[in-house]
Design a protein around this nucleic acid. Structure first.
Length: 459
RNA sequence: GACCCUAUGGUCUAGCGGUUAGGACACCUCCCUUUCACGGAGGUAGCCCGGGUUCGAUUCCCGGUAGGGUCGCCA
């Protein structure tokens, strides 16, 4: 019989961090890095820590930090330790703070003194350089495997690197390592662009006499053409998605599918579902190109599933943002109008164009469609439909449908012959919500007025 | 220039020596239908190249090529 044995030491509890530099925007790749860190923390029951790398005082601001905080909050990636506001001197949560590098100067100074006094660093023309090993360093990586990183030809010329600038400012490699060390970070999950630099970090950890954390370098997100996504590229900023009416669940879901796979042919899965399945070793090693089309598809999926109240809320917000006032109409009418759009639009940014005809009286008909629908032979047909509608006592979808079909039969034409010009007259567009239902919402009076007005445009 | 990582349809991916190479997005066709969207049924399209190893390579090894990354007193 095999005895079940307890491990000698309980597994140490996972502490991961997302350490962005406040540049004024949250890169979509950064968002995914944050997401993967968060997923790993939640999967393992560990802690997710947010640390702000604001060492470059010149280009950092409280606003820039807020962009990151609000971006993470929008995605629903809550952190267990870190800042509460963008104020570097403000309150934070967690007992490993401060969580702004700008507030950790003393820590760095102390560590540099230690390095200096042990002869592991030295002053050089006012700056302080770290004595880097000349030997290749093996980076054990949970995603990539063991990576042996020898010095490059340029590094061989001068292997030591600056850790404190001549103006007294410590540089990234130093502070990053010190913070990870002092914050007890167990796993560093970050973009693959840091892989080569990791040798420096490991050397620093050795100098401080502590084991380095485990590393997991995740592949990068590239543009469609394979180039690196930089600030200017479409979709590079998380703001693109918040501004264009995307749902955080869609963005999260899509981001999960870049470099990670649930492996059983499902594409759509919730974050809690991913938390259950997520792990580091199964992360892919190759970069992924960002596919806006697939994100949009997922967005459509989530949008269709939205509960009514959330749909109304987001819809009204999107309309207001586009300058369309929904307050002029009774709440019930607004809801009725929006109900005809549910399941039809993919992003809320589409809504103002799709449903705008409900909220303004000026209808400008699509010229292309008018050429097809507003033709002379249709004029008497639409006139007959107008007359039939005007006699309707109950102007609801069922009655409208019945009346339109009756009229079509009397005219000996297919319903589409009446539907297309009517839709165009009332909405201005060749497509949109169900005609019968949208007419009910618009109401008899406005419907007739719009048809009347369109009749003048027939030729 | 040196070093590191990577390589399955246009895109995201499953696959871990023997498969008709599976799924999703996109695209095309048809069906449903008041348009669009949804849904349903089909379809086009893939293992970067060359050597090995093996009875047998998409899968393992080496080389090449291509893409990405790093070598800063940026982060």
């Amino acid at each position: 019989m095999i005895l079940k044995t307890q491990p000698l030491n309980p597994p140490m509890s996972v502490r991961v961090r997302f350490a962005p530099s406040p540049t004024g925007f949250l890169h979509i790749g950064g968002a995914r890095t944050a997401l993967f860190n968060w997923l790993y923390a939640r999967h393992t029951g560990g802690k997710f820590i947010l640390r702000i790398e604001d060492t470059d005082a010149a280009r950092n601001s409280q606003e820039a930090v807020e962009v990151i905080l609000s971006g993470l909050r929008w995605l629903g990636l809550d952190w267990d330790e870190g800042p509460i506001t963008g104020d570097a001197t403000g309150p934070g949560k967690g007992d490993h703070g401060p969580y702004f590098q700008s507030q950790r100067k003393a820590n760095y100074q102390q560590r540099v003194e230690a390095l200096l006094s042990h002869g592991l660093a030295y002053e050089h023309e006012g700056a302080i350089k770290f004595k880097m090993t000349r030997d290749p360093i093996t980076i054990p990586d949970l995603v990539v495997g063991d990576v042996v990183r020898p010095l490059t030809d340029r590094e061989v010329q001068d292997p030591d690197f600056v850790i404190v600038r001549s103006d007294g400012q410590p540089v990234f490699h130093l502070v990053n390592v010190i913070d990870d060390l002092e914050m007890g970070i167990t796993h560093v999950i970050r973009g693959e662009d840091h892989l080569s630099n990791t040798a420096k970090h490991i050397a620093l950890f050795r100098a401080f006499g502590v084991p380095a954390p485990k590393y997991a370098h995740i592949p990068l997100i590239l543009n469609q053409d394979g180039s690196k996504m930089s600030k200017r590229d479409r979709g590079a900023s998380l703001a693109t998605y918040t501004d264009e009416g995307f749902l955080p669940e869609a963005v999260n879901n899509y981001l999960c599918l870049l470099g990670w796979s649930p492996k059983d042919n499902i594409e759509k899965l919730s974050l809690p579902e991913v938390v259950k399945r997520f792990d580091l070793p199964q992360i892919l090693r190759h970069n992924a190109k960002f596919d806006f089309e697939k994100l949009t598809w997922l967005q459509g999926e989530y949008c269709r599933d939205l509960p009514a109240d959330r749909f109304y809320e987001l819809a009204v917000h999107a309309l207001a943002k586009a300058g369309q006032d929904t307050n002029a109409l009774p709440v019930a009418s607004v809801k009725a109008a929006l109900d005809t759009c549910r399941g039809k639009i993919k992003t809320f940014a589409d809504l103002p164009a799709y449903a705008g005809f409900y909220f303004r009286d000026e209808i400008i008909c699509d010229a292309e469609a008018a050429k097809k629908s507003f033709v002379s032979e249709n004029k008497p047909r639409v006139e007959k439909l107008r007359d039939a509608f005007s006699k309707l006592v109950t102007f609801d979808a069922a009655s409208i449908e019945a009346e339109l079909k009756t009229t079509a039969t009397e005219l000996g034409v297919k319903v589409g012959v009446l539907i297309h010009p009517t839709r165009l007259a009332v909405t201005g567009h060749p497509n949109g919500p169900s005609l019968y239902h949208l007419l009910e919402v618009i109401g008899k009076e406005k419907t007739l007025a719009r048809i009347e007005k369109a009749l003048c445009q027939f030729r």
